[in-house]
Design a protein around this nucleic acid. Structure first.
Lengths: 331, 331
DNA sequence: TTGTAGGCGTTATCAG
DNA sequence: CTGATAACGCCTACAA
C-alpha cells in the first residue's frame, strides 16, 4: 500500500539489501549507488515503515510517559518538558494518565511495557500496593524505568528527585525566623513527594521547637473549594494559625484567599512554583522543585541508556529545592 | 526473546493459526482447545507483540495528538480529556508539541503520519503557510485528521469547533447592557479560534453601536508580565477603558490585577473557563468553550472512523459557548 | 561493493 | 474445527 524498499530497489536496479544499507548509513555502499538510491527515495517519497523496523529491532524509539493527570498544571509542565527533550533526541512520547487510581497503577506500567516502548518515565505516580510494586519490578526487568519524584531502589530503575524534604525544612525555618508559631500545613496525597514534604515540615517544626498540633496538619482533596471550606472550618472553630504552608500551589491560592476573607493577612507558602502562584493576589511565595532540571535529567538518562554505551548511569539524581519569594511572604 | 505464539502453540500441540484464532476471539475454535490455549497463555505470561501485529494490520491503535504546548493549561486539559476518552476505546496516545512554530507546523503532522498512527487530532494548532496546508492535505489522504478549533474543509478531515464568535458577541452584549462603552480586548495569536474571537468581538462592538478604537484592541505575548505592562502603558497614556475582554484567562488574570492597581474596578471577562479564572481575586468571569464536549466529539469521530462502518461521520461538529459568571462581572 | 535468504511475530487465506 | 503457508517491510549475516 505504501512505498517499500522493494519499490525503490527495483527502480534502482539494486537489491533491497543495498537500499537498506543506504537507509542505515552503512559505509559499504559505493557513492554512486548511494546517491542514486537516495535520489529515488526522495522522488518516490519513501518513508520507512516503523512497524517493520520495530519488529526486527524491537524498538520504535518511543518513550512512555506516565503521570497522574496531565490536566494538573504541574504534570502538564513536566510532560511538556519531557516531550521537548525527548523529541530532540528523536524519541516519540506515548502518554498515559493513571488518574488518582492509587493502588492500581501497576497495570498502567505493565500496559505501557506491553507496547514495547524503549523506556518509561513516571512522574510522581505512586506504586504503593504490593501488586503495583511487583508489576513495576517486572517491567523494569524488560525496559528501564525512570521515576521522577519517586524512588524504589530496584534494578534497572533510575530515580530523579528533588529534595523537597530539605526544601520544606527551609520553608519552616523562614517562617520560624519571622516568629510564626502555628503553621497550618495542607496536603492531599502521600506520594513519595508528598511524604517527603510532610516529613520535612514536621522535622522543621521540631527543629525550631514549635509545638506540633495535629489539627494544623490537614489532608484534603486538591480543589479550591475544599481548601476554602477547610479554612472556613478552622476559623469557625477558632483554631489559631499564623502561617500557611501547602504541598501544592493550588491549595495556597485558595487558602490565602479564604484567610484574607477572614481578616488573616498571614504568610502563605505554596509548592511547585507554578503559574497559579503568580495568578493569585497577593502573588504567592512557592517552593520551586526544579522541574526543568528533573525532566532534563530524566531525558538524559533515557538517551544514555538506549545509546551504545550504557556504562555509567547514575541510579539516583538529586536536586535541591529553592524558595521563590513573592508578595505572600517576605523575609 | 519474548514468548511468542509459537511457544504456546508448541506447548498446546496445536498450530500457531489456532493460537492466533483464540487470540482474536474467532468463534471457529472448540471450547476445549480455546480453554487450553488461554490457560497456557496465562501460565507463560504471553503478551502479543504489537510490532508484528502492526506490520500485518498496519495499525497499532495509536492516535496522534498535536497541540501547541501541553504546558499551557488549556491544551493540557484538552490532552487529558482526549487521553481519557481514547484510552477507554483502547487507543494509545502519541503526543507532539509544536511550540509556537507558526508556519512550520506541517512537519509535525507529517512526522506523526510517518509513524503510521491510526488518526491525528490537532488542538488549535494553526497550519497557516502554504507548505503547512499542503502537508496537512497529504497527511489526510493517508489517515483521518480531526481538528479541534480549526476548520480546513479538506477531504478526510473532520473539524470540531466551538462557536466562540457568537460567544464573544454574547460577551460584548452583556457588557453593553451594563453600559460599558470602551471595551479593551487583549489577545495573542490569530489561530482559527483567535480570529473568530476577535471577529466576534468586533462584530459585537458594531452591533451595539460602540465605537471601534484601534488602541483598545491589543495583541501581546501570552504572559502575565506583558499583560500587566500593557495595562500600565494604557493607564499612563490615559487611554480610557471601562471593561476588559481577553482571548485567554491568563490575560484576564493579569489585566484585572493591573487594572485594580490603577484603581479601575471594572468588569473583566476571560476565555476558556480554566482554573486560572478561579485562582484570581476577584474570581474571573469566563467564556466557556466547551472543551469537554469538543474532546468527546473528537474521540467519537476517531472511533467511528476506525470502526467497521465509517458510514456517516459529520464533517463538522459545532458547539456553542457559554458565559460562566463570576465576581469579575455580574449582570 | 553487492545480492540472497532467513528471521522478526501476527494475521489471513487457503485447504483439509 | 484445524493446519500449512504466504504475506507484512525491514535488517543482517553469509556468500559471491
Amino acid at each position: 500500500m505504501n512505498i517499500t524498499i522493494y519499490d525503490i530497489a527495483q527502480k534502482c536496479n539494486v537489491s533491497i539489501a543495498t537500499v537498506s544499507r543506504v537507509l542505515n548509513g552503512s559505509t559499504r555502499v559505493s557513492e554512486k549507488t548511494r546517491a542514486k538510491v537516495l535520489q529515488v527515495m526522495k522522488e518516490m517519497g519513501y518513508k520507512p515503515n516503523p512497524f517493520a523496523r520495530g519488529l526486527g529491532l524491537d524498538s520504535m524509539k518511543i518513550v512512555g510517559v506516565i503521570c497522574t493527570d496531565v490536566a494538573d498544571i504541574f504534570y502538564a509542565h513536566a510532560v511538556s518538558l519531557l516531550e521537548d527533550g525527548l523529541r530532540k533526541h528523536h524519541f516519540d512520547v506515548m502518554l498515559s494518565n493513571t488518574g488518582s487510581d492509587t493502588g492500581h497503577n501497576g497495570k498502567y506500567i505493565s500496559a505501557m511495557a506491553d507496547k514495547h516502548v524503549d523506556a518509561i518515565i513516571t512522574i510522581g505516580t505512586p506504586f504503593s500496593s504490593e501488586s503495583d510494586v511487583r508489576q513495576l519490578c517486572e517491567t523494569a526487568r524488560q525496559i528501564p524505568v525512570i521515576t521522577i519524584n519517586s524512588d524504589y531502589h530496584q534494578p534497572n530503575m533510575y530515580s530523579v528527585v528533588c529534595n523537597e524534604k530539605e526544601g520544606m525544612k527551609m520553608v519552616v525555618a523562614a517562617l520560624a525566623a519571622k516568629n510564626c508559631q502555628d503553621i497550618l500545613y495542607i496536603y492531599d496525597s502521600l506520594t513519595y513527594s508528598g511524604r517527603h514534604k510532610l516529613d520535612g515540615f514536621r522535622q522543621g517544626i521540631r527543629e525550631w521547637r514549635l509545638t506540633e498540633k495535629p489539627e494544623l496538619i490537614q489532608q484534603i482533596p486538591r480543589t479550591l473549594e475544599d481548601t476554602e471550606a477547610l479554612i472556613d472550618r478552622l476559623a469557625k472553630a477558632a483554631i489559631p494559625f499564623d502561617a500557611i504552608v501547602t504541598s501544592e500551589d493550588i491549595f495556597a491560592v485558595a487558602a490565602q484567599r479564604a484567610a484574607l476573607r477572614h481578616g488573616k493577612n498571614i504568610p502563605v507558602i505554596g509548592c511547585n512554583n507554578s503559574i497559579l502562584a503568580q495568578c493569585a493576589t497577593p502573588t504567592i511565595t512557592s517552593l520551586d522543585n526544579k522541574l526543568t532540571s528533573l525532566c532534563n535529567a530524566a531525558v538524559h538518562i533515557v538517551t544514555e541508556l538506549t545509546g551504545k554505551e550504557a556504562d555509567s548511569v547514575p541510579v539516583r539524581t538529586e536536586f535541591s529545592a529553592d524558595l521563590v519569594e513573592r508578595e505572600s511572604f517576605r523575609r
